[in-house]
Amino acid sequence: MKPQDLPEHRLSHSTGKVAGLLYSLCCYLCFLLTALYLMGFLSGIGVPKDIDSGPSLDWRLATLVDTLLITLFAVQHSGMARKGFKQWWTHFIPAPIERATYVLVTCLVLVLLFWLWQPIRASIWRLESAWTQGMLTGVFWIGWGVILLATFLISHFELLGIKQALDAWRSPKPENPTFKTPLLYKLVRHPLYLGFLIVFWATPSMTAGHLLFAALSTLYILIGVHLEERDLVELFGEDYRRYRQRVAMLVPLIKRKPDASSNQQK
């Protein structure tokens, strides 16, 4: 049977799936390019404009601009991830490409941040010895390794929208979400966020602008963790509550002690 002999709605449906997959792959490519630029933006390696370069404004105006940029990212990144927004959003964006669209919008907001970021070059610390510079630079790249590993432990391609577009072809049966704690998730509840905290703070040369970026991003992560854990408790119930009691949130060496209500439930 030739394509022109197929029913029109069936051909259109197949075309939509192809378009959705290509769109998701393009969004994934945007993510890879943005992630690479973020590495260079924070490290000052291989990018035309990093966190400490470019023309600068008065430090007070620069602080205001940079704070607004971080706030814009926080509102977009966290707001679009909430369940209520997703339910509203999928009235306009097909479900198979909803996650990819979220990834794309996040990338666009980050590109805006890279473009408009105002450096504040006042030095907070600067390590002079080669071994301390090398040590902190190594920690910085270890942080990126933690981030990459964490994404694969929680399904890298689902996190970034590729799996959803592929599922539109396979029509998989709905599955109840299974609570798992692979590898790093046995040490901390949010290794992905831990990796980001490492790369934000691990620098041998900390300027006031970099410090502002790191501090505001850390504040956003702490708020984001609270919102995410609320969603996870709703999704996994008692399994996640028990997990939260025995595993630290971000710092592996800090263990939480079960509270009285947990002991009574046992």
Rank of each mutant, 00 (worst) to 15 (best):
P96H: 02
T132Y: 11
V225D: 04
W169C: 12
H156L: 11
S205M: 13
E98M: 13
W169F: 08
K86P: 00
G16N: 07
L136K: 05
L21V: 10
S217D: 12
W131P: 04
S217Q: 08
V103P: 00
Y23H: 02
G54Y: 02
I254Y: 05
V65E: 12
L29Y: 09
S205H: 11
L216F: 03
F200C: 05
V18H: 06
S56M: 07
I124W: 04
K86F: 03
T90S: 11
A260T: 13
G40A: 08
K2Y: 13
I120R: 00
Q76H: 08
L222T: 11
L212R: 01
L61I: 14
D58Y: 03
G44K: 00
P172Q: 02
I97K: 00
V109P: 07
T151A: 03
I124V: 11
S56K: 02
E238T: 14
V75G: 11
L61R: 12
W141D: 02
L33I: 10
L148F: 06
N176A: 15
T151K: 01
S261G: 13
K173D: 04
H91Y: 08
S262R: 09
L250Q: 05
F179N: 05
E8C: 07
A214R: 01
V105W: 02
A165L: 07
A130L: 14
G138Q: 06
L127E: 09
I120S: 01
L184S: 06
L149K: 10
F85W: 09
S56Q: 08
S129F: 07
H9G: 13
G20E: 00
P204E: 08
K186S: 13
M1S: 15
M206D: 01
L25Q: 06
M39Q: 07
T203A: 04
E229K: 07
L149W: 07
K17C: 08
G44S: 07
E238R: 15
W115R: 06
L187S: 07
W144K: 09
I97Q: 01
A248Q: 05
Y243H: 10
P182F: 04
K266A: 15
D66I: 00
L36T: 04
A74S: 11
F152D: 11
K2F: 14
M80G: 05
G224C: 10
W59I: 14
D58P: 09
F92E: 07
I142Y: 01
H91Q: 12
E175L: 14
T181C: 12
L69K: 02
T90C: 12
Q133S: 15
R241I: 02
Y193V: 01
R10Y: 06
G54W: 01
T71M: 13
P252D: 12
G138S: 12
L149R: 09
L33E: 08
A100V: 15
L29C: 13
H226C: 15
L61D: 14
R241C: 05
D231L: 15
Y193D: 05
V105F: 03
C107K: 03
Q118K: 04
L33A: 11
T106G: 10
A81M: 06
L25I: 14
C27H: 01
L136M: 09
L197A: 07
V105T: 10
L22A: 13
C107M: 10
S129D: 14
P96T: 09
A168Y: 01
H9S: 14
A95R: 10
S155W: 06
W144C: 09
E128W: 04
A215T: 09
L36S: 13
A62W: 03
D66G: 03
L227I: 12
F152N: 11
